[in-house]
């Protein structure tokens, strides 16, 4: 079932951009939202994008693009609080804040999500071990998207 917070965000986006209909599909769910009123002009659906990172030829062993997120086998997701671009390190020359196997505790900086040239540090709110990094460096992320799967300790 779709997260009510995501639903609210979608409705807000529709109102803000004067969209009559929004149709979102992925492998797990389909959401179609229609708003009342029938203006003479249909405005193309608007979704948030970042410049698309070139597809990775193969997994680098750190990120798992197939990660579906959500609770699984006792894992807890650290989710993105916003739409933006995921950065695993403070700058291109630095090591990743965390990677699979890293121990994190409450307050550990795990990544940065950038939007409109504001770099938001994302901190863990739990203690445990990072089992999986769900996003590749430089990829776009959505609100509520799992970034890391953590096994609490």
């Amino acid at each position: 079932m779709i997260d009510i917070r995501k639903l609210k965000e979608l409705v807000k986006l529709m109102v803000e951009n004067d969209l009559a209909e929004l149709d979102l599909r992925d492998k797990e769910e389909t959401v179609t939202i229609r708003r009342g009123g029938s203006g003479p002009e249909m405005i193309a659906p608007t979704a948030y994008h970042v410049p698309i990172a070139a597809p990775a030829a193969a997994s680098n062993g750190q990120a798992d693009a197939d990660a579906s997120g959500g609770a699984e086998d006792g894992l807890i997701a650290i989710e993105s609080p916003m739409v933006g671009t995921f950065y695993s390190a403070a700058n291109p020359d630095s090591e990743a804040f965390v990677s699979a196997g890293s121990q994190v505790s409450e307050g550990t900086v795990v990544c940065i999500v950038e939007a409109m040239k504001v770099f938001n540090e994302i901190k863990s709110e739990l203690t445990g071990t990072v089992e999986r990094v769900c996003v590749k460096n430089g990829e776009s992320v959505e609100f509520g998207q799992p970034l890391f799967m953590v096994r609490p300790s």
Binding site: E16, N17, I43, A44, T46, A47, Y48, H49, V50, P51, V83, G84, T85, E114, A115, M116, S140
Partner: peptide, 18 residues
């Protein structure tokens, strides 16, 4: 409405945040 950048690309309006 939120500061996102709006571009028209091939006749379609798209919004960007980065």
């Amino acid at each position: 409405a939120g500061g996102e950048l709006l571009l028209e690309i091939d006749g379609e309006r798209r919004a960007f945040v980065s």
